[in-house]
């Protein structure tokens, strides 16, 4: 065991990782500072349950609804996994939003953490994007009509509006093409962006340390 550890450490630098990432001193902070890790936790939960859902989900108008009925009724624990993913989405939006508010109220976005804030805001919008694209996937009445209206909204912008709508939908109507591109966005593009930005966000946090609680004289 000892030998294996030495062998791995020599190659991976486990000790260095432990020292740099885990065994570091940080200022004393309060419970609001757990919102960031809670956001990360929810992202991991969403990723895991989402990957499970893709095992049976079919992104086509013919089968999307039926395949979800199958997940809910035909597969063991399918209802639980979908339930966690469904409520996880809601909680993630809330927690990420509160994390943003915490950062704002405790002035953590100020020097030297401007870039951490920037990536964080991007992450907030990507999370909302996940909510918006994921909403369509069950292909039920609620999903269909909400997305019809949702993609209509940018259409009101003068000149380029109608084009944005048809870009989002992949055509003039909400169709199989829309479902396919929302699915692609939901499981590839947006998560890829989120993972990338989380990495940058975390790197910055480890490099700059957790911001301290503002004192009276700060």
């Amino acid at each position: 065991m000892e030998k294996l550890y030495t062998w791995l450490d020599e190659r991976l630098g486990l000790k260095t990782i432990y020292d740099v990432v885990l065994d570091r001193k940080v200022p004393k902070v309060n419970w609001f500072y757990t919102l960031g890790s809670a956001s990360l936790f929810l992202f991991v939960i969403q990723a895991v349950t989402g990957i499970f859902l893709t095992v049976y989900y079919v992104p086509s108008p013919d089968h999307a609804y039926d395949s979800i009925q199958f997940i809910m009724n035909g597969v063991a624990f399918g209802w639980l996994i979908r339930g966690i993913h469904h409520w996880g989405a809601t909680l993630m939006v809330l927690v990420v939003f509160f994390h943003m508010l915490r950062t704002f109220y405790f002035a953590s976005y100020k020097y030297p953490r401007e870039l951490t804030w920037l990536t964080g805001v991007l992450l907030l919008f990507l999370t909302l994007g996940m909510g918006f694209t994921g909403y369509l996937l069950p292909w039920n009445q609620r999903a269909y009509w909400a997305t019809t209206v949702g993609t209509e909204i940018p259409g009101t912008v003068p000149i380029i509006g109608p084009w944005i709508t048809s870009f989002l939908r992949g055509g003039p109507d909400l169709s199989a093409v829309t479902l396919a591109r929302f699915f692609s966005l939901h499981i590839w593009w947006l998560p890829a962006g989120i993972v990338l930005l989380i990495s940058v966000h975390m790197y910055l946090i480890i490099r700059l340390g957790i911001s301290s609680l503002p004192k009276k004289d700060d």
């Binding site: 895991v48 499970f52 095992v55 597969v75 063991a76 624990f77 399918g78 639980l80 996994i81």
Partner: peptide, 8 residues
């Protein structure tokens, strides 16, 4: 549950 989900 994940294992049950996959093998059921």
């Amino acid at each position: 549950p994940g294992i049950g989900y996959l093998i059921s």
